[in-house]
Design a protein around this nucleic acid. Structure first.
Lengths: 204, 204
DNA sequence: TCACAAACATTCCAGGCTGCCGGTAAGTTG
DNA sequence: CAACTTACCGGCAGCCTGGAATGTTTGTGA
């Protein structure tokens, strides 16, 4: 009855996944501006007709790619290594974790979409709820990780200061600056954060 | 002898300035992807032929626009209000100043170019030296402003932590998040920076 | 004033991208 | 197994973009 042995649903999911993955690849490698449906299809190994069957317009494809992308990001974040220490050291490990999550290639794609969304109302509309979901999940994870050892005062401020700093660093990375310099800045922030949000110490 | 009363050099400078300004406008309003030479000429009130006469290719135009842009940014930064206070309060004012400079519309254009440069070697090559100039000028200004009251330990780390944080916040702004929230984060950072880099205090 | 060069305007062309269409193959249902 | 639905294919048309070629106006120097 079937040559490929695949059910319709399987075929659909496979093709859609291929297209969405290829879209993310394009975002990372080519940037939003140079990402064309043609190139996406080429990389996905799918015909343009098939692409249009599953995603009527390019905007549709992008909108779903955003979801796909953030799910992947959340997944890698959730399953990655967790901080094992508590107190100030735990905060340091959290910052490392956020660094990995928010400066990797998936986050690069997110940044491409953020910038593109600034001047594209449709894309921005698609991104807003998904970005919120990412923020919520990050916050949850942060609370889970530190457990009872949450910084006493304004814990979420610590989190979002870190994330925004990292995004700034990721931006600078785009021009290809010195990685050691970024590492140095991150270490400085780690020190400050541990002192500011860590458990109270005796000396200054 | 002349109908317009303008010398050749004046005409050239005027047209070039119009084109470069229009380019920056496009970057801010349309983003890099949707910025076409056609639109630039339309906004500049200049024919496509004139544009091509002064900037042979789109890349040339962009390269010079980067310079133009950063000069303007440096100019506004240099002539803007300077911190009047010293010590910890002076640091707070510096952060405010950096906030204004690095989150305005000129910086939005810079960010568009940074992101575009990530996947466009030619553009990136044009940007690198100019970005360095911006960094150097910012550092100089920072030292001028605080004068003898520079944070004792690692003053430049304080500066670049601030700039990168602000760029992250600017990124978040693109999705249209809550301005009050950003203000809150900046205030938190101000507090931390004053405590960390300001003159030593007695209590914690 | 006249020849020349620079600035500017218009038009055209090749290429890419998107969206749509008619047709085919594969899977599903009665 | 036959009707039907869904997935997929390849080509076409319209649009826009960037770059080139050609013609016109404006300033300049002899």
């Amino acid at each position: 009855m079937s040559r490929t042995g695949l059910t319709q649903q399987e075929r659909t999911e496979r093709t859609r996944a291929r297209l969405l993955d290829a879209t993310i690849d394009c975002l990372v490698e080519l940037g939003y501006a140079r990402t064309s449906t043609n190139e996406i299809c080429r990389r996905a190994g799918v015909s343009r007709g098939a692409q249009q069957h599953h995603f009527a317009t390019k905007a549709d494809l992008m909108a779903e790619a955003v979801e796909h992308l953030v799910s992947k990001l959340i997944a890698t974040m959730s399953t990655g290594p967790r901080p094992t220490l508590t107190g100030a050291a735990g905060i340091g490990e959290c910052i490392e974790m956020l660094w990995r999550a928010y400066s990797g290639s998936l986050s690069t794609a997110v940044m491409e979409l953020l910038v593109a969304g600034r001047t594209d109302a449709e894309l921005r509309g698609a991104m807003q709820p998904i970005d919120k979901a990412l923020a919520r999940r990050t916050t949850e994870l942060f609370h889970e990780m530190l457990g009872d050892h949450l910084p006493a005062n304004r814990p979420d401020l610590a989190l979002w200061l870190t994330v925004n700093l990292i995004r700034g660093l990721a931006m600078e990375k785009m021009l290809g600056g010195d990685p050691a310099r970024r590492k140095q800045l991150l270490e400085e922030w780690k020190t400050i954060a541990m002192r500011t949000y860590g458990p109270p110490e005796q000396g200054v």
